[in-house]
Amino acid sequence: MGIYLPIAEMSVNILVLLAMGGAVGFLSGMFGVGGGFLITPLLIFYNIPPAIAVATGANQVVASSISGALYHFKRGTLDVKLGMILLAGGVVGSSLGVYVFALLRSIGQLDLFVSLLYVFLLGSVGGMMMVESVRALRRSAGGQVYSLRKPGQHNWIHRLPLKMRFRTSKLFVSVIPVLGLGAIIGFLASIMGVGGGFIMVPALIYLLKVPANVVVGTSLFQIVFVAGYTTVVHAATNQTVDIVLAFILMIGGVAGAQYGAMAGQKLRSEQLRALLALLVIAVAARLALDLFVPPESVYSLAPFGEV
């Protein structure tokens, strides 16, 4: 069943898109991630121009994260003050990202840059997650209790100036790393079309030592707003948000996420992390393959609107 995408100006199969959204939604529900890092590469594999895949991916992230953000907001398991500072950094990072995006597009290097970023980030994050989860699995097999947070330890981040108190997180930390982290996430959101949870969550836990109970909520809070902001800026400057494409993905994603969450409850968290790590590495490997394997033709035409 074909459907014409008005912005991408191409005809695609609506069932393939629904399945794609559903599968990613299932995985994101299962692992508690936004799924942007899967949607964007999948769209690129499906021959959607990367510029449109990225901007539309950011739009889809809003839909897939809002439900979780609302859940945590209701429960009070999020640090609004910390989220706001992260968001301030995110807006700056996202604006810079959209500018770099337009620049790369005009010189024909956007596709390469997007792929490289994906391969680098997914490869390293997936690798680290894999190592960590395998260790955790071994430890739990040995019967040891393992806690991610070690409150007694302080690192260089806690010696930076401009300290601010975050009551919900029971933290007294400099705003510089918080703003910086927000900016990095915002930049990645606009260039990769991801929410950035896969970087945000470990950074909050390991770098800022945010308590585990507010990490996910705060991360989702920031992601919803940064992804929303990124969508608007992409739409306004690059006109690359395809609302029809985004909507189909959202429908599939929202439905899939519910079943994924149910499936996720049946698995242990270390197992989940190991599986997610595998998935992340697989996506990175597939993208890397495209970079190194000789293309079918060394010539290509710049999509209309990129010149």
Partner: peptide, 29 residues
């Protein structure tokens, strides 16, 4: 209509896209 909106009313179009995402996520919930 969508094509024109994206070209000529790009800011409003972007805001609407976000609103649609929020509504879809909410409805799913």
């Amino acid at each position: 209509y969508i094509y024109n909106a994206a070209r000529n009313q790009s800011l409003l179009y972007g805001l609407f896209a976000v609103l649609l995402a929020v509504a879809t996520g909410w409805a799913g919930r």
